[in-house]
Design a protein around this nucleic acid. Structure first.
Lengths: 341, 341
DNA sequence: AGTGGCATCCAAAGCGCTTTCAATTATGTA
DNA sequence: TACATAATTGAAAGCGCTTTGGATGCCACT
């Protein structure tokens, strides 16, 4: 059943039926009723592809999912998606997900944009000097970036959390507790948040004339294994750090395993603060020693970005172009005064 | 840049250019080269919506993502998606994800199918007597079901694991270790896998004239909190069970916390076997007491289903209509002989 | 009676691609 | 040389929808 058939059935033109369906004012109320009734009876659904071709609108937002054989799936991604979804479902939007090799992001994003399958783009996993920004700007399609790109002019729409501030505050807390030997367990070096978090740590340390010693920074995928490995490395340093800053509760999971295996006590021998994305699976308060964290909900960020994106597509704006969310520093038992040695 | 412009640029007809691009044999190799060259230079990309309208093919597979405000995002979903993605990226397919309230699955699935946005459907979270099956059959669109639907005629394409066998075997192992008081920590009661796993447990127990006692079965969302609650409940039963079967390592996470809090030792006072979907975050061998598990990779299942779906769309078949994967029973330290009391 | 305004409705022109059917030229065969 | 055949190419007809630019009829008002 298509528009033509439906309109013939009703003895109306396609024009009128189309207008009736799309809520245009110039159609008689009685006629509209008839049309709506017929739709109900016939189960007619407009063909989206045709609609899209005619209007250029798709009712969907696009994103690239980094994936590859052996590429470990990222819990953060799923959680973010849940946030997007929560908002999208309210507006009858859907997602088009383009899986792509992490090395192929720029091209994948472009393909997605040009495909005509999406009205707006969501971009994540931002890097320093991210090459996607230039491409996005040239695209004349709405987009919102999750995170920022260190080193690029901040003239693009983004939603980010104050990573630098979060890790600055966290470091300050540990300094106040008397710690002087710090280590940072970070995400991959090229990612924007990793850069900023490191800066936050360094600037807090610098105020006391301190710095991150040689070997006291790790950059790795945010998995629990990597957390374990990094922590094992830190623990066998001659001048073992007593204060650990950790970019994710996922890393912390492994890190704490290493601490336990070494027979050390978290919150006493070693203090640790992790960033908490509020993953349902890793609640810092549920760790055997509850974790002190900097917190900001990834899901909430997803929801907000979906709002902005969908709102822009529907011209329900205006929206702030740039948002920077503060994080909360929540003190639990994994931090304590520096041990007397 | 569209086909018309490109063809004018080349002094060819749209027909020929289109054929050159789509690999039809009746175009001169030299001409094809010229076209390809021009495409490279101009950056021309065919408009997907138009392509879809003309061919009826979309190059995408659709799925429904259950979501709602407050609905906790499901790690299993993300992991499965990663598997789908791994295969999809090889064939330049993408996903269309329709977020939907869990109570609205049938309608959401239908909307997705009729939207014309997808070539095939993937369906998960199967229930007993699942109403979606009838709808899918009437749809004349390829689909594969992950799981099965207890109580429905098994005449639909599916990929499932042998849930009943897995839990039968697990239960047998615990019986052999001398356990007689069992508890089952299961997923939501209406879900197919939950039904089958329970059956597996019951039939193994029945062989010894045993059964699941009153209060020794829990059905709940597979989150760590629910695991904690369920285990706390089991532990305060007058006849406390010594053998626990657990439908997910996520549940086990909470359950073990409860065991620890009660001052009991896993693998000694309490034996536990969990089903392991091979989630990157919850490796059974990384638990403080490594977990005995029944294992089957969710990601591998996603990959296989994507293969079947994409293969069917591309007429690269035939594929088996129904696959039932055996699980592995891997013994680690969380199971031990029944304690002498 | 003549005019303008309003409420409705429609024919037809796209949107950018694929594909059928036909035309043209090149090649081979008798 | 004449004719069948193969190799290339094109014109044009959709795919199902939206939207522009009129029609048409009816009414109120001069």
């Amino acid at each position: 059943m298509n528009l033509k058939q439906l309109s013939e059935l009703l003895g109306l033109s396609q024009t009128t039926v189309s207008r009736a369906l799309n809520g245009y004012p110039e159609v008689n109320e009685a006629t509209r009723e008839r049309v709506l009734q017929a739709v109900k009876e016939t189960g007619y659904r407009p063909n989206k592809a045709a609609q899209r071709l005619a209007t250029g609108k798709a009712g969907s937002i696009g994103l690239v999912m980094p994936t590859a054989p052996g590429h470990q799936s990222d819990v953060h991604f799923g959680e973010f998606l849940a946030g997007l979804g929560e908002e999208a479902v309210r507006h009858d939007f859907h997602f088009v997900i383009m899986p792509a090799d992490p090395d192929d992001e720029v091209a994948a994003l472009r393909r997605l944009a040009i495909s005509g399958n999406v009205d707006a783009l969501f971009v994540a996993y931002m890097r320093g000097h991210d090459p996607r920004l230039a491409m996005l700007k040239s695209l004349s399609m709405p987009y919102v970036v999750h995170g920022r790109s260190y080193g690029s002019e901040p003239d693009y729409p983004y939603l980010d959390i104050d990573n630098e501030g979060a890790f600055y505050d966290a470091t300050r807390l540990l300094l106040q507790l008397g710690h002087t030997r710090f280590a940072l367990m970070n995400g991959p070096m090229h990612l924007d948040f990793a850069i900023r978090r490191k800066n936050g740590v360094l600037s807090a340390l610098a105020e006391r004339g301190l710095t991150l010693e040689e070997g006291c920074t790790s950059h790795a995928l945010m998995t629990d294994e990597q957390g374990l490995l990094a922590m094992e490395h830190f623990l066998q340093l001659p001048e073992r750090p007593t204060a650990i800053l950790c970019s994710s509760t996922v890393l912390a999971l492994g890190a704490i395993r290493a601490v336990n295996q070494a027979g050390l006590r978290l919150g006493e021998d070693i203090s640790l603060i992790a960033h908490d994305d509020v993953l349902p699976l890793l609640k810092p308060e549920s760790f055997s020693v509850p974790l002190t964290t900097t917190r900001s909900s990834l899901r909430a960020a997803g929801l907000r970005i979906a709002q902005r994106l969908i709102g822009t597509v529907k011209h329900a704006g205006p929206f702030p172009d740039q948002e920077l969310w503060k994080t909360e520093l929540i003190v639990r038992a994994s931090t304590g005064p520096v041990p007397q040695s």
